[in-house]
């Protein structure tokens, strides 16, 4: 009974916590990429004389963007399939929030202990991304259609890498429960798998979060805003909110699967934060150091590099399972 109450409370607490952390990670992405480009980026401490007008800090800049979008008019194009166009952002957000319930946070196992939670979490993440494709397709805009098509192509290859890395870990640890994987011990062989499968998961995250060189679904110079071209106001704000939750969810999943036991006990919290910041820093460095791939190059790259790496992971995982 106590466990049940604790789980319910932690499920309620994790949503604002994930939003806050997601906003901080998004802020870091923007700030670090600005610093890499010799810009200032959203300011941590505003200039003294501008404080009354512009606020003291812009640490929550992504949250302000979302709030502003919620205060704006929402335009629904006449040519769109209205129901799918309007509901897709909310369904996408729903699945992203549902996915974070299955990913542990230090001190809060949440629902990560339920059987097959790894499969549930990965399916919910897939569903969330699926609705970021379906909504734009329903909008009737050619730019959104091109963006959605690129997203589908990218999604197919990046998802393969994502699944291969998840299941390599699952085989090596002989468990499909995220909590069991994240509370397991470390050994030399598992550390080897962490490096190879972690690298693959990192690459898959680049595709899922549209980080350069895999940002062709949103290629601004070519296809306006890609999938989000026709979205405005609350619907666009919901998609941005989904992105924030996805960023948090993927970072949390990475830490809980590849860096056990950081995501288990509340005492690991400082290390968890450090790991998350390092991961976001790595994502940002990849973003600023790379130009955008064409879609064909991206697929070729995934097929030539990521998928063989995934197969290698599987071999290592099987060897660990059979030998160790």
């Amino acid at each position: 009974m106590v466990d049940l109450i604790f789980t319910v409370i932690s499920l309620i607490v994790i949503v604002p916590l994930a939003l806050f952390l997601g906003v901080i990670y998004s802020y870091l992405l923007r700030k670090l990429s600005a610093r890499f480009q010799w810009r200032v980026g959203p300011m941590l401490r505003m200039y003294g004389d501008l404080k009354p007008l512009l606020g003291t800090t812009r640490l929550l800049q992504p949250l302000y963007d979302i709030l502003k979008l919620y205060g704006k008019e929402t335009i629904v194009p006449d040519v769109s399939r209205r129901r799918l166009f309007v509901y897709s952002p909310f369904l996408s957000l729903f699945f992203a929030v549902a996915a974070i319930f299955f990913i542990p946070f230090p001190g809060m196992p949440l629902l990560s202990g339920v059987p097959y939670s790894l499969i549930i979490a990965s399916y919910l993440l897939i569903a969330s991304i699926l609705f970021t494709i379906l909504g734009p397709v329903a909008s009737g805009s050619p730019w959104a259609a091109i963006g959605a098509r690129r997203e589908v192509e990218l999604f197919l290859v990046s998802e393969l890498g994502f699944v291969l890395s998840l299941f390599a870990v699952a085989i090596a640890r002989q468990s499909l429960v995220i909590w069991e994987i994240s509370s397991g011990g470390q050994s030399l062989y598992l550390a080897l798998l962490t490096v190879t499968a972690g690298a693959l998961m990192f690459v898959a995250m680049l595709g899922k979060l549209h980080i350069k060189p895999f940002d062709m679904p949103e290629a601004e110079a070519e296809i306006v805003a890609g999938p989000y071209t026709e979205y405005s106001g609350k619907l666009l704000g919901t998609y941005y909110l989904t992105k924030v939750f996805l960023l948090y969810g993927l970072v949390a999943l990475f830490i809980s699967l590849f860096l056990p036991p950081i995501a288990t006990d509340v005492l690991w919290l400082p290390l968890y934060i450090v790991a998350a910041v390092v991961l976001v820093f790595l994502l940002t460095s990849v973003q600023v150091l790379n130009p955008r791939y064409r879609i064909r190059n991206a697929i070729n790259w995934y097929l030539k590099v990521a998928i063989p790496l995934g197969v290698l992971n599987f071999i290592i995982a099987l060897a660990i399972w059979l030998v160790v």
Binding site: G41, R58, Y64, I75, A225, Y228, L236
Partner: peptide, 21 residues
């Protein structure tokens, strides 16, 4: 661009008029 960088105040250039203020 970097010299003046209005992004420090949260200003962003958006590609679609539907996103703009």
């Amino acid at each position: 661009a970097p010299r003046f960088d209005v992004e420090r105040f949260g200003v962003q250039l958006v590609p679609s008029p539907r996103h703009a203020d």
